[in-house]
C-alpha cells in the first residue's frame, strides 16, 4: 500500500472507530478535563451530530454548486453575458462578507434552526464554485469552441459535451473549497440551533471542558480533510483525461 493510501485508511478508520465507540477513547481525552468532568461529550450522540453536520454540509454544497454552475452558464452566453463583469465583482465582494453576518441576517428572516444555517452555507458556498466555473467557462480556447460550432453542435450539445467537461477540473476545485469552508462554517450553525458538531464545541466552551472542544474541533477538521480528499478523487474518476 502506498503511504497516501495508508494514511487515508488510517484516518477513516480512527474517525469511524471514535464515532462508533467514543467511550473507548476516554483515556485519550481525560488529560484535557479537570474537576472530574466527563472526558467524552455526553449531551448527545457524537455519531448523530457528525452525520447531521455532514448532511447539512453536503446538502448545502450540492445546492450552491448547482446554483453557482447555472449562474456561471447563464452569464457566459447570449444576453446573460452583459452581466459577466458585474457578477465577477459581486463574487469578489461577496467573499469579503463574513459567514456570521449572513447568519445574523438570516435568523430574523427565517427564525432559528437548520434553515438559517442552510441559507448561510448555500450563500457562502456559492462563491468559490461560481468564480471557478466562471473562469473555466469564460476562458475556454476559442479554437475549441469554434470547432464545436463548426461540426454542427447546437448550444446544448456544446455546453454539455465540450464546455462543462473542459471547465470540470476548475469547477471541482471550487467545489472542494466550498466543502472545506462549509464544514467549518457549519459549526457556527449551532449558535442558531442547527444540529451539528458546533454543539460539542460550544458545550465545551460553556463548561470550560477542553476535551469537548477538542472532540468537536478534531471531528470537523478531519471531516474537512476527508471530504477535500474524497472530492479530488471522485473528480479525477468522473472527469475526462485532458492530456
Amino acid at each position: 500500500m502506498r503511504p497516501a493510501t495508508l494514511l487515508r485508511t488510517a484516518v477513516w478508520l480512527s474517525v469511524i472507530a471514535f464515532l462508533w465507540r467514543p467511550s473507548a477513547f476516554a483515556a485519550v481525552f481525560a488529560p484535557f478535563t479537570h474537576d472530574g468532568a466527563p472526558a467524552i461529550y455526553d449531551q448527545g450522540d457524537l455519531a448523530d451530530l457528525a452525520l447531521a453536520h455532514l448532511g447539512l454540509v453536503l446538502f448545502a454544497t450540492a445546492l450552491s454548486a448547482v446554483i453557482a454552475v447555472l449562474l456561471a452558464v447563464v452569464v457566459t452566453r447570449g444576453p446573460g453575458r452583459a452581466f459577466l463583469p458585474m457578477s465577477r465583482s459581486l463574487v469578489s465582494i461577496g467573499q469579503t462578507f463574513p459567514p456570521v453576518a449572513v447568519l445574523a441576517v438570516a435568523v430574523p428572516l427565517v427564525g432559528f434552526g437548520s434553515l438559517p444555517a442552510l441559507i448561510a452555507l448555500v450563500a457562502y458556498g456559492l462563491l468559490p464554485v461560481f468564480e471557478n466555473a466562471l473562469t473555466g467557462l469564460a476562458e475556454l480556447p476559442a479554437s475549441v469552441l469554434e470547432a464545436a460550432d463548426g461540426v454542427g453542435m447546437d448550444a446544448w450539445q456544446r455546453l454539455w459535451s465540450i464546455e462543462l467537461p473542459l471547465a470540470g477540473p476548475l469547477i471541482v476545485e471550487g467545489l472542494r473549497q466550498t466543502l472545506v469552508i462549509s464544514v467549518g462554517t457549519a459549526t457556527l450553525g449551532s449558535t442558531v440551533a442547527a444540529k451539528g458538531l458546533g454543539e460539542v464545541i460550544i458545550a465545551g466552551l460553556l463548561s470550560d471542558n477542553t476535551a469537548f472542544v477538542l472532540q468537536g474541533g478534531l471531528l470537523t477538521g478531519l471531516m474537512a480533510i476527508l471530504l477535500h480528499d474524497a472530492i479530488g478523487r471522485i473528480g479525477a474518476y468522473v472527469l475526462p483525461r485532458q492530456g
Partner: peptide, 23 residues
C-alpha cells in the same frame, strides 16, 4: 435548414485544428 444541421453536412477545418482536448 437550422445552422447546426447545415454544418453537419459541411466539413470545417481551422488553424490549430480545434480538436476537443478531452476526447
Amino acid at each position: 435548414e437550422p445552422a447546426h444541421a447545415l454544418r453537419r453536412r459541411i466539413g470545417y477545418v481551422i488553424q490549430g485544428n480545434g480538436l476537443f482536448p478531452h476526447r
